[in-house]
């Protein structure tokens, strides 16, 4: 599989022939993640959950290729992979080094919309447009409400007032599974974040996804899911606010989840960021909460240092996690 992917990338690199400059970008990334869990009374090498994918010590790359004709761009291909150290597998005897596939999609500019196929973001919640690939603080998708990435097809169209996106995916997240599972998601949003400094979105997802954490199944069979979601992002001066809510039915039970993240940027070029994030959710008959505080400092344009403290009410655990993240343009 990996040989095929490398071969595809090489072919694309050779076939790229823009008028000037390049039509592709290739970044390398590496991160070290380590911390301490008071509940487990031991060092940890993950940021959220031992078997979840983000964040763990890893090396990887991020590749983007654009395709164009004499009339302009008509498509793109993205591939983003990591080889991550998975400490949790030491106890089970499984391979501790796990290949993680994030972006793996082809996007075609059909005119009426951009159509994608592969492993990409589905149309639900903050994760539909917020890139959390390198971050310690995560949106509701990493709490089981949606997916950071999912396998499937989708369409997205930007309007002057906002965006409309739909996706039909497997509902399996990181692994590609076919067991009667599927997920339909749709999101409409108002406001262009980079222009208006706000974006408010309403989304919905329906189907029979497979409950997974990272690459692990936590339920043997697909279960009916129906969620309604709302999200809001607002930038003002050096302050960033993000809010996300989801409500509906998961695993035959009513469920609710709320997330708020406030961040304040300091220093030139927003080098220093302080953040706080409470998350509150209902699973079964119980309500849980998690409170996190984060600090991020851009040491150079390539290297970012992050730290996070989390109180996990579900596990009654206090965790502190540090991350050094490196992202380097190779080509």
């Amino acid at each position: 599989m990996s040989r095929i992917i490398v071969a595809v990338v090489l072919v694309l690199l050779v076939s790229a022939s823009p008028a000037f400059g390049k039509s592709y970008l290739l970044y390398l990334e590496a991160q070290g993640v380590g911390g301490y869990s008071w509940e487990n009374d031991e060092a940890i090498y993950y940021s959220m959950n031992p078997v979840d994918v983000m964040q763990k010590p890893s090396v990887g790359f991020d590749y983007l290729q654009r395709f164009s004709s004499e009339k302009g761009d008509w498509g793109s291909f993205a591939l983003q992979m990591r080889l991550a150290y998975n400490e949790a597998y030491r106890a089970t005897g499984e391979d501790e080094f796990q290949v993680q596939l994030y972006n793996a999609f082809f996007k075609y500019k059909a005119g009426f919309a951009d159509l994608w196929i592969g492993h990409s973001r589905i149309a639900f919640g903050l994760a539909s447009y917020l890139d959390s690939h390198a971050l310690l603080l995560q949106p509701l998708a990493m709490y089981g409400y949606g997916y950071d990435r999912d396998w499937g097809v989708g369409a997205t169209r930007d309007f002057d007032w906002g965006n409309v996106s739909i996706a039909y995916s497997t509902g399996s997240g990181m692994p590609l599974e076919f067991d009667g599972n599927y997920l339909v998601s749709a999101r409409a949003s108002y406001g262009v974040l980079s222009r208006d400094n706000y974006n408010i979105g309403f989304s919905s997802t329906y189907g029979k996804p497979i409950e997974t954490i990272g690459y692990e199944k936590i339920m043997p069979d697909p279960t009916k899911t129906f969620l309604m979601g709302a999200d809001f992002t607002y930038f003002w001066n050096n302050i960033e606010n993000r809010f996300e809510a989801a409500a509906g039915e998961k695993m035959d039970e009513d469920t609710y989840a709320f997330l708020w993240r406030i961040g304040v940027n300091f220093l030139d070029e927003d080098r220093l960021k302080l953040e706080a994030q409470p998350v509150y959710w209902k699973s079964g008959d119980d309500w849980f909460y998690e409170i996190s505080g984060g600090v991020s400092y851009k040491l150079t344009s390539d290297i970012t240092l992050r730290g996070m403290y989390t109180y996990d009410g579900q596990m009654n655990d206090n965790r502190i996690v540090f991350q050094i993240y490196w992202y380097y343009k190779l080509l």
Binding site: D160, V192, S194, T300, S301, I303
Partner: peptide, 16 residues
């Protein structure tokens, strides 16, 4: 000296 790279400045939605 190689440890200084950066991300560029793309249009948010080039089509629009």
């Amino acid at each position: 000296r190689l440890l200084f790279a950066a991300v560029g400045c793309d249009l948010n939605d080039p089509d629009r």
